[in-house]
């Protein structure tokens, strides 16, 4: 991913920042240009708590180019406690421990390295909630 694009995504990748509609209260991730529910364009940034539960998941054995060295790795749709689903990689969990409804929380991890000399890109992943 080119650096300007990655930089543009920093508030989403590091802070889980989406949008909240000031008209109807609908919360969205990724951020929207227009409210998906009431079509208002009066939206403000909204930072999600990063807590949720697993809605669906998969473990990847054949990956896109850039992620080849990470296989096997696991991904999920996580139902955030504020409502929306988010697509994410999972961290600190083995494939046989993953279950639908498992409580998870956001952490910042390395997403990928662009070759030996390229920038390292970080962003959100989700891991099982600690101290449970």
């Amino acid at each position: 991913m080119d650096i300007p694009r990655y930089w543009r995504l920093r508030n989403q990748r590091y802070r889980l920042e989406g949008t909240e509609c000031t008209e109807c209260g609908e919360k969205s991730f990724p951020p929207r240009c227009v409210c998906a529910k009431c079509k208002s364009d009066s939206l403000q940034p909204f930072r999600f708590s990063g807590k949720g539960t697993i809605y669906s998941f998969s473990t990847i054995y054949q990956a896109l180019d850039t992620f080849d060295k990470d296989i096997p790795y696991s991904i999920a749709l996580v139902k955030l406690e504020e409502g929306p689903l988010i697509t994410t990689q999972l961290a600190d969990i083995s494939p046989d421990e993953i279950k639908i409804k498992l409580p998870v929380e956001m952490v910042i991890r390395k997403i990928y390295e662009d070759g030996e000399h390229g920038p390292i890109q970080y962003g959100y992943k989700f891991r099982p909630v600690l101290n449970k």
Partner: peptide
Amino acid sequence: DADYEASIGLSFAALNAL
């Protein structure tokens, strides 16, 4: 979605797996 699916490691098969 390039920003929120493919670039964090989801192939087409991965989306179908979900």
